[in-house]
Amino acid sequence: MSKVNIFTRGFFKENAVFVMLLGLCPALGTTTSAINGLAMGLATTFVLIMSNIVVSLIKSQIPDKVRIPAYIVVIASFVTVVELTMKAYLPELFAVLGLFIPLIVVNCLILGRAEAFASKNNVFDSILDGLGMGLGFAMALTILGAVREVLGSGSIFDIPLYEGDGALVFVLAPGAFIALGYLIAILNKLTKKTA
């Protein structure tokens, strides 16, 4: 597999949210606005890259039977690092994302990449993989956040687009499911045409 391919497949072909349906909880729970989605995506990307690096470095030292608990400890540590750093320097953002920051630890995407990629490949490729998958995830969350913000609050990245309140339902829980459903449908349609 070429290096470019390792990096780019996280965006479309194997996009975590739209194609693989991984990490759906934060994808739905934090995307009330574009900026929140982007922030959550970047936090996840950081954890993903770091855990990919460490897992790739220590892979040969970990006995097979305890690899999952070992990976979980690594991932949980980086999640806590993100949590503490956000509390210290971005307290407002932390207040919005709240519970979903510690929950990065159970994002299937991260353990999935550690198990499926980083534990079998060298450090450089693992970084590329983490970067591609992570940014693809961040992109998906930003798009979903943007759609919900435009429809629900009538603004994008906090810049007002039109007068009035927008369709509130898109900021609330049901709108999250419906918006993601239609986004996947549109994406399916587009990829089928080009193929």
Binding site: G175, A176, I186
Partner: peptide
């Protein structure tokens, strides 16, 4: 066609969430 499978499942979940609201 385009809504088959996953997309319609999400929309259904949305309507269910609406009901729970």
């Amino acid at each position: 066609e385009g809504m088959k499978g996953v997309p319609i499942a999400f929309v259904t979940a949305g309507i269910l969430a609406l009901a729970f609201m």
